[in-house]
């Protein structure tokens, strides 16, 4: 889902930066100073998750934890992702500095949307319902991120639309994996540290 440097057009870059600066500013305003350490920890977890490779048949993928970040942090997910993606660009050369705005928006917006839709549902008394909702949230976040990446490619050049479709299909197995991981994570946090979801 990381757009690489040199792929996006000027319009897409400006749109990405405008969206991510606005959302990060709102996120920073809504981040309580006492919660800043927790935000940093989740940001670190998001960063580290990208280093864990999971084998799927002959290929392998890495976790992105978009939905857990959104469900735990809400609006603060934007600054957390901006910092994590910045560090990924500097340390591992994933993505880049110029496309940081677009990449933050691509990953931050789905996290925020799943928080708005599923935030209350995963705190339901019914454990099974909560687990199922967490699964849907995890899968939906990846699908939305893949769609947004496609939109940015489409803004850059309409001829990229076929490549964007391919990108979308490639993310379907990852969406299922992320859904399962999100569901397990939410169930674990509900049992051991419900204050994380409050």
């Amino acid at each position: 889902m990381h757009n690489s440097e040199g792929v996006l057009s000027g319009t897409a870059l400006i749109a990405g930066w405008a969206g991510s600066i606005t959302c990060t500013a709102i996120g920073l305003k809504k981040t309580d100073t006492n919660k800043i350490v927790r935000t940093a920890l989740i940001s670190s977890a998001f960063f580290l998750a990208s280093l864990v490779n999971i084998r799927i048949g002959p290929s392998s993928t890495h976790l992105s934890l978009l939905a857990p970040v959104g469900l735990i942090l809400g609006w603060s997910a934007f600054p957390a992702m901006l910092i994590a993606l910045f560090l990924q660009a500097i340390l591992f050369h994933f993505g880049g500095l110029l496309v940081l705005g677009a990449n933050t928006f691509i990953m931050g917006l789905p996290a925020l949307i799943v928080y708005i839709i599923f935030g209350k549902m995963i705190r339901s008394e019914n454990k099974i319902f909560s687990g199922v909702m967490a699964f849907i949230a995890g899968s939906l976040a990846i699908i939305m991120a893949a769609c947004l990446a496609g939109v940015f490619l489409g803004i850059s050049d309409r001829n990229f639309i076929e490549a964007a479709k391919l990108l979308f299909y490639a993310h379907i197995p990852l969406a299922l994996i992320e859904g399962a991981v999100t569901s397990f994570m939410i169930m674990f946090l509900r049992k051991t540290a419900p204050e994380f979801l409050s």
Binding site: L28, T31, I36, A40, L41, S44
Partner: peptide
């Protein structure tokens, strides 16, 4: 913004610990 800089430092620290 200062919050973002603090977040950067703490995230870096968090990465090393975690």
């Amino acid at each position: 913004p200062e919050k973002l800089r603090v977040l950067f430092l703490l995230t870096l620290r968090g990465i090393f610990i975690m």
